[in-house]
């Protein structure tokens, strides 16, 4: 087991290295971060040249990658523009926990990401909980009554939900529950942001501001989870041991909940476990529409300005989380399922 974990970790590291190189190359060519630094007007020639040099963007890609990876405090860099390297650099590199500084805000990337993680997790975990809860209800119900009228109706509704682009659901729900409800004098929900400034950042405020984005996110993910749970349950129900249990005359409840669910739980838990690290990335579209200050918006804001350190930071964080969660899931899986051996 220990050997397996060590092996997986050693497989994970080159994987992350390859991801980082690929993304770095992609990022180097998606646009010019200095092009938009003049705000509404065009960046001046002298400022362009100065900023390119000061931000180290004039260095070859390999050097920029090296500085990003291991920092530049071991070599002298030119800090005042006379062309002669004079001082040691100040960057430590991502391997030593220094994600660099945003080209746009000049804030440390770790700080920018750190500010957004709690907000994103709040939104995403709430959506995940709501989604999984309802998906279990519907998935199990429709598996037990496959092809019944209810199963068909629910399946149809699920497919409709699944087929709607999320921005459509978001704008629609915002329009109905915030604008129309207010017009009609009904209790209505707030539109954007995390709280009402006049009331302050109270738990209640955050809760009611979360309803619409959580609803939009859940509608979409809910369908996929329900289908997965349904098909997993169906598969388990058609297994021989379930048939055997049935034919032995065990009560239906016992068959379903003890024999079938116990075995269906494993793949379901695995899928949820593997999805968890992706929650870190937030929801790009939903966060944008509801002005939710999460990672998805951070990504979108900074990718549109080619802010390499921030974008790389977010992507590498998610990628690392995925690798770690995969290993954890594997281990738990092996621990739960005696058929799997790692040696």
């Amino acid at each position: 087991m220990v050997r397996y974990i060590v092996k997986r970790l050693f497989q994970g590291l080159p994987l992350l290295l390859v991801i980082s190189i690929t993304l770095f190359l992609l990022m180097m060519n998606i646009g010019d971060p200095i092009a938009t630094m003049g705000g509404r007007t065009i960046t001046r020639q002298s400022d362009r040249e100065r900023l390119t040099r000061q931000l180290g963007l004039d260095k070859p890609i390999s050097v920029q990658y090296l500085y990003w990876l291991i920092g530049n405090d071991w070599t002298k860099v030119d800090s005042d523009g006379d062309g002669i390297p004079d001082n040691y650099g100040t960057r430590h590199g991502i391997l030593r926990g220094d994600f660099g500084t945003s080209l746009v805000t000049r804030k440390p990337v770790t700080e920018l990401i750190g500010e957004r993680i709690p907000n994103t997790l709040l939104l995403m975990v709430a959506s995940e909980v709501v989604t999984v809860f309802f998906a279990l209800l519907f998935g199990i119900y429709s598996a037990l009554r496959q092809y019944s009228v209810m199963d068909n109706i629910m399946t149809a509704l699920l497919f409709i939900a699944y087929s709607m682009p999320i921005f459509f659901v978001s704008l629609m729900s915002m329009y109905i529950f915030a604008v129309l409800f207010k017009k009609w004098g009904l209790p209505y929900l707030p539109t954007v942001g995390m709280f009402d400034p006049q009331v302050g950042k109270t738990p209640w405020q955050i809760f009611i501001h979360m309803i619409l984005p959580v609803f939009s996110l859940s509608v979409t993910y809910f369908a996929a989870y329900s289908r997965y749970i349904r098909s997993t349950m169906l598969e388990v129900l058609s297994q021989d041991y379930v048939r055997t249990a049935r034919s032995k005359g065990l009560p239906r409840r016992q068959v379903v909940y003890i024999h079938a669910l116990k075995n269906a739980a494993l793949p379901i838990v695995t899928v949820i476990g593997l999805d968890l690290p992706f929650l870190l990335g937030g929801a790009v579209v939903t966060e944008r529409i509801f002005a939710w200050p999460g990672m998805g918006r951070l990504f979108l804001d900074h990718v549109s300005r080619s802010d390499l350190p921030v974008v790389m930071g977010i992507l590498m964080l998610v990628a690392t989380a995925v690798v770690v969660f995969q290993i954890i899931t594997d281990i738990i899986y092996a621990w739960l399922d005696p058929r799997i051996r790692f040696d």
Partner: peptide, 8 residues
């Protein structure tokens, strides 16, 4: 490829 969210 699977390690990066598709939308990103």
């Amino acid at each position: 490829m699977l390690n990066i969210p598709t939308i990103f």
